Structures are given as C-alpha cells and as structure tokens.
Amino acid sequence: MPRRLDAVERTALLTAALRAAETNRQDRLYEDPYAALLAGDIGPQLLAEVLEVTYPTDSERVVPSTPDYNAIRTRFFDGFLQHAARMPLMRQIVLAPAGMDSRAYRLEWPDGIRYFEVDRPAVLDYKKSRLDGVQPRVDHRTVAVDLVSDTWEADLEAAGYDPELPSTWLLEGLLYYIPEAETHRVLDRIAAMMAPGSLIAADICGAAALRVPDMQPLLDVFAGWGCPVVFGDDDPEGLFAKHGFTVQAVQPGTAETAEYGRWTDPVPPRSAKDVRRFFYVHGRRR
C-alpha cells in the first residue's frame, strides 16, 4: 500500500481533480485521460470545497476561478514543455515537483529526451499505484526526494541527470507553499544544476494575493487543510534574476494567454498596488 499523503502532498490530488473536470468539458483546453484515476476519491472532495468558495450559491464570486486558472496554467506549460523538448540540443526535462502530472503519459515526446519527475516518496508511491500498467511515452525516471532536502541534487544525478547538458525545469505548484528564505535557497540550488541557456518555468502569485480580502475565502480553505499559502512576489522577474535567470512573467488573461478565452476576471496592470495577481513565469538560465 502507498504511504498516506500529508496536507501539502494532497494538493496534487486537487490538481488532478481539476484536470479531470477540465477533460470533461466540451470546451476543454487539453485532455488528460489519467487525471480522474490519479485524483482518486480524495481529489473530488477537495475540489468540492474549492468550488464552494469559488462559486458560492448565495452571493457573487469574489475569489479567482481556480478551475480556469488551472486550465490555463496546464495548457500554457504543456506548450512550454513541448516547445522546449523539440529544441535541437535539449535532452532533459525536470518536473519538480511532479505531483499527479501525467504529461509523460499523455503527450508525445521526441526521441532522446530524459524526463525526470522529482517529488516526495509518498507522492511517487501513490502515483505509481494509480498508474500501474500505464506506460510513459518517454524515457521516464522518478527521483523520490523532497526539494528542500539536502540530497536531491545527488539523487537527481544518480537517476541520470547531467548538469553539464541543457535542461528544462518546470516548478508547477511549488512556490506557494515554501517560505521566502527557502524559495531563494531552492532557486539557487536549481540554478546551480542548470547549464547556461537551459529553460525554466514556474507559477507564482503576487505578494498582495496573500492578504487582500477577495482571496481570503480560498486561502482559508488551504490553511484549513494544513497547507497554507506562504509566499508570493509581485516582481517575479526580479526574484528569478537574483538567481541567474532571465524570465518573463505573464498574467492569465493577458495577450500571451488570452487566446485560450477562459479568464474572465480583470487583469490588473503591473503598476497597481494591493491587488491579487498570478503569474506564469518562463525564461532561461543566463
């Protein structure tokens, strides 16, 4: 039997449930045939709690639409990874954390790619049990370690990762849950494992999103689960620049993602203060 997931690890089941719900939509932005299987029984229960505060029956919606945010994020990073994998010198993809992501199974990958999934042992054990018999479409390697541990670099190299070769890293659903000091430490360590010109992507919320009233109902749900959102940054470009990256941070609903047609909330200008905002970050190692 796989180990029991803790509060933060269970958020991966929420993401899977969101992807399963998106897959069932007629206007879906992508199709994930494994999401429902990965979500299990717990994922839909977590999603129901999120939907209760996102779409209240007795008042107008004030919190951002978690389903739309997740759908746009998944589609955006699908495209980022597929583009990166087809670059002539690219040979390594790293998902950290991997959670219940099924891109190794549902997307087509070019030959020669090594695809690493890094996550805590309990998460990877659970995922393996749910996908028993399903074959990945890529040279798929799992690394059972926490990114805040002291050994993950050695574990990743032992799995076949070469820090001297170009790589592409996706930090999806990570930075919300680790404190600022640890965020800087993790980004420094990741940068040290990436050859110049390697690519990186991540999602992050603005700092104000942790304190403005129209986010509080959703923040309360996550805090009630035992996995509070503890970090955000209104200048992701500056945050990543401190660690050797040149990135662009785009908000859902802006020109880079508006073609998906799924973000109906206002998109605040970067100059606006004390407003919630969310970013999809992408760029390269200098």
Rank of each mutant, 00 (worst) to 15 (best):
191 A>G: 14
203 D>E: 14
239 L>H: 03
138 V>P: 03
88 P>C: 09
120 R>G: 09
17 A>E: 01
44 P>V: 03
76 F>E: 04
286 R>V: 05
151 T>W: 05
1 M>I: 08
198 S>V: 09
274 D>I: 03
202 A>N: 12
68 D>T: 12
112 G>C: 04
215 M>A: 04
89 L>D: 15
5 L>E: 00
244 G>Y: 03
81 L>H: 02
233 D>A: 08
261 G>N: 03
252 P>G: 11
234 D>K: 09
242 K>M: 05
36 A>E: 12
135 Q>W: 01
171 L>E: 09
231 F>S: 11
271 S>F: 03
167 S>Y: 02
146 D>K: 08
126 Y>L: 12
231 F>Q: 04
95 L>Q: 11
102 S>K: 13
139 D>Q: 14
56 P>Q: 11
91 R>I: 08
254 T>A: 02
254 T>Q: 14
77 F>R: 13
60 E>R: 15
10 R>K: 12
215 M>W: 03
26 Q>W: 04
248 Q>V: 13
102 S>C: 07
42 I>P: 15
58 D>S: 13
216 Q>N: 12
62 V>D: 07
223 A>I: 03
213 P>H: 08
101 D>T: 11
75 R>V: 01
231 F>Y: 00
245 F>D: 11
227 C>T: 15
280 Y>V: 04
273 K>V: 02
281 V>H: 01
174 L>I: 04
65 S>T: 07
67 P>F: 07
30 Y>R: 13
158 A>T: 06
151 T>I: 08
254 T>W: 12
12 A>S: 06
17 A>P: 12
176 Y>C: 14
30 Y>S: 11
230 V>S: 09
36 A>T: 08
270 R>Q: 10
242 K>W: 00
195 A>S: 14
108 E>M: 14
80 F>S: 07
72 I>V: 10
93 I>L: 08
42 I>A: 08
212 V>M: 05
235 D>L: 02
227 C>I: 15
1 M>G: 15
203 D>W: 00
61 R>E: 03
50 V>F: 06
222 F>P: 10
168 T>Y: 00
104 A>E: 04
141 R>V: 12
112 G>A: 06
32 D>H: 03
6 D>Y: 03
99 G>N: 02
68 D>Y: 13
45 Q>N: 06
123 V>F: 01
240 F>G: 06
150 D>Q: 11
